[in-house]
Design a protein around this nucleic acid. Sequence first.
DNA 1: GACTTGACTAGAC
DNA 2: AGTCTAGCCAAGT
Length: 106
Amino acid sequence: MTFRSAVYAVVRRIPRGEVATYGQVAALLGRARAARAVGGAMGSCPADVPWHRVVNAQGGISRRRRDSGMLTQRIRLEQEGVRLRRGKVWLARFQWEPPRGRRGRS
DNA sequence: GACTTGACTAGAC
DNA sequence: AGTCTAGCCAAGT
């Protein structure tokens, strides 16, 4: 199980209409400081991974080196009902609150 | 195994 | 509030 596949597993759990931050995903994996690695994993992910539901700590859409997919991300989020405030996701309202005691043990 | 890169962050200025 | 700097982590060379 690579770190990346673990990342995908978590992202797939993000409910439609909600979002999570890179740091949040990292924390759920027990690697609170690996937000950067999470971003790297998102660079290329399976089609069934709702990558658009992952944003940076400020609720903003991080820039890719190339591709302007960040535009697609914003649109997809809005279509799911996630509202933005001044170009940034309204985290206080749409940030995902993952259930605890999951991840295998209780 | 060292070195580089990147969709990150938090803290200084 | 906008920029810069320094940690942090996994992957690919």
